[in-house]
Nucleic acid binder design. Structure first.
Lengths: 220, 220
DNA sequence: TAGATTGTTAATCGATTAACAATC
DNA sequence: TAGATTGTTAATCGATTAACAATC
């Protein structure tokens, strides 16, 4: 599905990446008890053009009303639905190191419907412990666990060297999505969705920006 | 600088984001002792067109040779220079929670020339400890520390509620770049470079992809 | 009704791809 | 020299912006 010929015209990657930003902005507006907003105000707050706001929102449906604008609550909810945030996802975390623990402790994820059910680690010393009330299991137990328990998403917080191998195991257990923090490009069936968080590349991009801005530093 | 009229035509954000990928791929080729590569082979490995590879690389200079292709070592090194990886950056980490510690322990960053000099935390219990041989200081000591010690980059691993306020303090101390893991849009002078790592948005994008792929889950 | 603001079509802009002459 | 492959210009494609008729 997605960009198949099921009526909707395909939506650009860029537009999709803007959706969570709309969602976040609208949630903030809700917090400020703002009831309605025009594309023009939205565009000011998000630093894009009003035209693009209307174009983006119309890709997904007519959420506005001429002469009025958009109802904040309604629009926030609709975008949430588009993003799939009206569903509950069960997530497991592979790797109970600092990164895995950071994700496990992050309150926002739970709040948004991403329920963290378990962590897995190769380190036997971690096994049996709990992190933020979430149990840590041995990697040996992964397949057995997934046979008995549901998991939609797995966050890969393990060294790059093991990521592909673990991804294969997870795909065999019918995982739906991989949130990949390692720096390898995972090779998985296209039924499995992969979202990469490339920290090293992000830091390099920052390095580039600093260099371009003329903040020259020591050669090495 | 950057897109000012200093001779170079401005380079698209998308092309810049591809640079770290080239760099990573070329580093991998080096590891496999591959000496030369054509734009065609590069394009196959990176899943972009050969045309785009040549276009990209030519934005930054003619690194290839007709009839031969690109020398892997040379190209890797040149892209490294463009990214500013031939420099050493000194980085401090604000927030010594799991995320801050994860970054502190990440070996790759040090290896690539990002030297982590200190962590800061409001929690007095953390103060005085060391993480991966890096000292943890009190947030109260931040300004004094930065007067006496150099820091080019600050990684913001603190709750969103405090991010802007800390960013202001860091900018006053002439930080060059902020690596922002909080989910607020930082308002800083444009001499200070900001790179955002938006984990929540990344997870929402994954949610969207899973939903689109038809992996419908429980309503909530 | 008059004013506001959307939804949508058309125009523009920029990025990607194709083509090919230059040259190693 | 012949073959390969770049650098670069031109063509295409897609995304962003502008414009405006529809309509609340």
């Amino acid at each position: 599905m997605g960009d198949t010929d099921d009526g909707k015209k395909k939506i650009s990657e860029a537009a999709i990446r803007r959706l969570p930003r709309y969602y976040r902005f609208l949630t903030e507006l809700q917090g400020r008890n703002i009831e309605r907003i025009s594309s023009k105000e939205l565009s000011r707050g998000m630093e894009i053009t009003a035209s693009q706001v209307r174009q983006d929102l119309n890709h997904f449906g007519g959420f506005g009303q001429q002469g009025y604008g958009y109802n904040v609550d309604y629009l926030q909810n609709e975008i949430g639905k588009i993003l799939g945030l009206n569903q509950t996802y069960t997530m497991i975390i592979i790797g109970a190191g600092n990164l895995g623990r950071a994700i496990c402790n992050h309150q926002n994820f739970n709040r948004r419907g991403f329920h963290i059910a378990a962590l897995f680690d190769i380190n036997r010393e971690m096994t049996g412990k709990q992190i933020n009330a979430t149990p840590v299991y041995s990697m040996d137990y992964l397949e057995e666990y997934l046979q008995e328990n549901r998991a939609d998403i797995a966050a890969l917080c393990i060294p790059s060297a093991h990521a592909q191998e673990v991804a294969v195991r997870l795909c065999a257990c019918k995982i739906k999505g991989l949130w990949n923090f390692s720096s390898v490009e995972l090779d998985v069936p296209k039924t499995v969705q992969v979202e990469n968080v490339r920290l090293t590349e992000s830091l390099m991009t920052l390095s580039f920006a600093i260099k371009e801005a003329g903040g020259d530093l020591d050669e090495r």
